[in-house]
Design a protein around this nucleic acid. Structure first.
Lengths: 350, 350
DNA sequence: CTGAAAGCGCTAACAA
DNA sequence: TTGTTAGCGCTTTCAG
C-alpha cells in the first residue's frame, strides 16, 4: 500500500495526497478531507525512506553517549527521546563505551543513516572523527567544548556554581581536608570539574593537597579504587567530592567495607544527581545537573540550523548546576585514623 | 557524491559498483579492486535510504523497553546494540515508560521506519497494538509470552530456577516468614515470578502468608512503598524477596530509614542482578538474569526469519536464572518487633 | 489549486 | 562478467 493507492481511492493525484499529508495550505479543504478519510480507512502512512531519499532530510537525530550503563545517560536519553519525538524526529542512540574505535563506528553509522544532526555527549571526541562529521555539514552539539563553526553548538555547563556550593557547604561544616576524585583526566569535563574544585577551595581559603586529588573514571569501580588509595594514605581527608555519582557510590561502598562511617567519619559529595542518589545509604549530597535541561538544549541546538538554515544561531547553551544537600555530609566529627589503625592490625593478622 | 561518481572515476557502470559493494562473487577482481580504490579515495558509502527503498529491507531492528531508567534495560540495550551492529543492523530503541499511548506511538514509529524486526521487552503488550505489528509481518520477539505465529518468538525465562534457589537459600538459613514484593500485577512476568515464589515456598514446606505478598511496580519508589506497608504490619517477616533489584534497593533504603538492619533483622533478595547490586549496602543477594543472553537471543530470534525466510524456526529461547549470594541475607537473628515498637513511640511523639 | 513528470540513490532484472 | 534500465515511494518543480 502506497501513496498511489490513496490517490486512487480518493480520486486525486498522488501530488495532492503528498500535499495533504504535508499540510500544504494550498489544498482544497474538500479534497483534503477526502484524502484524510482514505488515509484513515487504509491506515496508511508514508514510507519514511522514500520521503527522506527525495527530501534529503531523514528526520533522525543521533545521540552518542559514552556509557549507556551509567544511569546519568539513560535519564538523558529519556528526555532526548521525548523532546525529539515531540518535534517529529526519530532518534539513534549509540554508546561508545569510551572506545575510540566504537566512536568512529558510531559516527560512520550515523552518517550512513543520514542523520540530520548529532548530539555528542561523550565529554570528549577526537579531532579526525570530528572532521568526518563537520565535512558533511551535519549540525552538531557538544558538551563543554567543541569547534567553533557554523552549525555546531556547545552546552556550557556551569560546573563552577554547583561545585563551589559543595565546597562552601563542606567548608561551612568545618571541613578543611577535602579530597577530589576526578573523571578520566583526558576529558575536558574532568578538568573543568577539577578546576572548579580548586578555585572554590581557594575561595574558601583552603589549601589543596595534591595527594588528595585522585583520578577516577566515572564508574563504580573507579570510585572504589580511588577510595582505596585514599584509605591507604597516612593522612586522610575528612571529606571527598566526586566527579560523578557513580564514583561517589563506589566511595560509599568502599567506606562501608572499611568501616568508615559516612558522614560521621567522612563526608561525601557526588555529581549528577542521578535518581538512585536519593536512596543510597546514606542518601547522597550531590551536585545536580539537569538531564532534562541538557536534552532540551541538545534538541534546540540541533533544530535551529535545521529548521532555519539562513539565520545565524546561538552557539552556546547554558546548563546550570546546583547543590542538593542530603545526608552524606556533616561536621567532621572524627577522622579515619582510628579505623586505619585497626585495619592495619587486621591486615597483619591476615 | 553518489554511486555514479564512483562509477565514473572507476570507469565502470553503477551496476558494477553496486555489485562490488554488495560483494557479489561475479565481479572481476581487477574491476573490484579499482572500485574499492575509488571508494576509499572518495570515502564513499552508500545511501542507506535508497538502498532500503529498493531492497525492502531497512537493516534496522527495533527494541522497545518499558523503562530505560531502570538499569536493567541499559545493560540489555548495550548488549543488543553490540550484537545487532555485529550483524549489520542499526537499532531503534524506545522506552514506553509503561504508558500504553507511548507504546502505541513507538510501534507506529517503528513501522514508519520500516524496521526489519522488533524486540518487545516490556513484559507485556496489549492485543490491538500487537495486531498492528503482526499484520505487517514484522518478525517479533517477546519476553515470557507472545502470540503463537510464524515469525514471532518468545524468550522463556526460567524464573523458577533462580527464585527457587533464593527461597531454598532463605529456608536453609532458617527463614519461615518470607514476604514477596511483586511487579505490576498485570504483567505476565510478575505473575510468573510470584508463582515461582509460591511454588518454591510450598516445596520447602513453608505456608505463604497472603499479607506478605505486596504489589510493587519495579521501581525504587514501589519498593519503598511496599516496604513501608510491610513495616506497618503487626506481624512482620524475617525475609523479603523482590521482583527486581530496583525494588530491593527501595526496600534496603526504607529498612535503613526505619532502623531495620539488613541482613540481621531482615534478609532481602533482589532479581535481575544489575551492576549496582554489587555495591548496595549491604551488597545484594539476587537472582541473576543475563542481559547479554537475552540480547543475544533477541537478535538471533529476529534474524532467523529475516535471513532464512523459507525455513521453519525455533520459536522459543530459554533464558536461565541463577542465585547470586551476597550479603543481604543471613540467619533470622531477630525480628523487627522491637523496632516497630520503638517506631510507634517515635510516631506518637511526632 | 491540481496534475504530470522528473528525479532522489540505489538494486535487480534483463541484455549483451 | 558487465552494462542498461526500470523502478522502490515519495516530493517538487512546472504546466495547466
Amino acid at each position: 500500500m502506497d501513496i498511489r493507492a490513496v490517490a486512487r481511492l480518493a480520486n486525486v493525484s498522488i501530488a495532492t495526497v503528498s500535499r495533504t499529508i504535508n499540510r500544504l495550505p494550498t489544498v482544497n479543504p474538500k479534497l483534503a478531507k477526502r484524502v484524510w478519510d482514505v488515509i484513515e480507512e487504509l491506515d496508511y502512512f508514508p514510507n519514511t525512506q522514500a520521503r527522506s531519499l527525495v527530501s534529503g532530510r531523514s528526520w533522525i537525530l543521533g545521540l552518542i553517549v559514552s556509557e549507556i550503563t551509567n544511569p546519568f545517560f539513560p535519564e538523558l536519553i529519556q528526555g532526548f527521546e521525548e523532546i525529539a519525538i515531540e518535534h517529529g524526529y526519530e532518534i539513534l542512540v549509540s554508546s561508545t563505551n569510551h572506545d575510540p574505535k566504537r566512536m568512529s563506528h558510531c559516527i560512520r553509522r550515523m552518517l550512513e543513516r543520514k542523520v540530520d544532526g548529532v548530539a555528542i555527549m561523550t565529554f570528549g571526541i577526537e579531532e579526525p572523527l570530528l572532521e568526518q562529521l563537520s565535512q558533511r555539514k551535519v549540525p552538531l552539539v557538544f558538551i563543554d567544548v567543541g569547534p567553533d563553526r557554523a552549525g555546531v553548538s556547545v552546552l556550557k555547563v556551569d560546573y563552577h556554581h554547583g561545585i563551589r556550593q559543595g565546597v562552601q557547604h563542606l567548608a561551612a561544616l568545618g571541613h578543611r581536608n577535602i579530597a577530589f576524585i576526578t573523571g578520566p583526566k583526558h576529558l575536558h569535563s574532568s578538568q573543568s570539574r577539577l578546576k572548579a574544585f580548586s578555585l572554590s577551595l581557594e575561595e574558601c581559603g583552603i589549601t589543596q593537597n595534591a595527594a588528595w586529588v585522585l583520578e577516577g573514571n566515572h564508574t563504580l569501580e573507579g570510585g572504589m579504587a580511588a577510595m582505596e588509595k585514599l584509605l591507604a594514605l597516612s593522612n586522610t581527608p575528612t571529606a571527598v567530592m566526586c566527579s560523578n555519582d557513580m564514583t561517589a557510590i563506589g566511595v560509599l561502598h568502599k567506606a562501608y567495607r572499611a568501616g568508615v562511617r559516612v558522614p560521621d567519619d567522612l563526608s561525601v559529595i557526588g555529581f549528577d544527581d542521578i535518581h538512585i542518589a536519593e536512596v543510597t545509604i546514606p542518601p547522597l549530597t550531590t551536585v545536580q545537573m539537569s538531564r532534562f535541561e541538557i536534552a532540551k538544549a541538545c534538541v534546540a541546538a540541533l533544530r535551529a540550523p535545521l529548521e532555519e538554515p539562513k539565520l545565524a544561531h546561538k552557539r552556546e547553551y547554558e546548563i546550570s548546576t546546583d547543590l542538593i544537600v542530603r545526608e552524606s555530609t556533616t561536621f567532621p566529627k572524627g577522622t579515619m585514623e582510628h579505623l586505619r589503625t585497626s585495619k592495619r592490625v587486621k591486615k597483619s593478622g591476615t
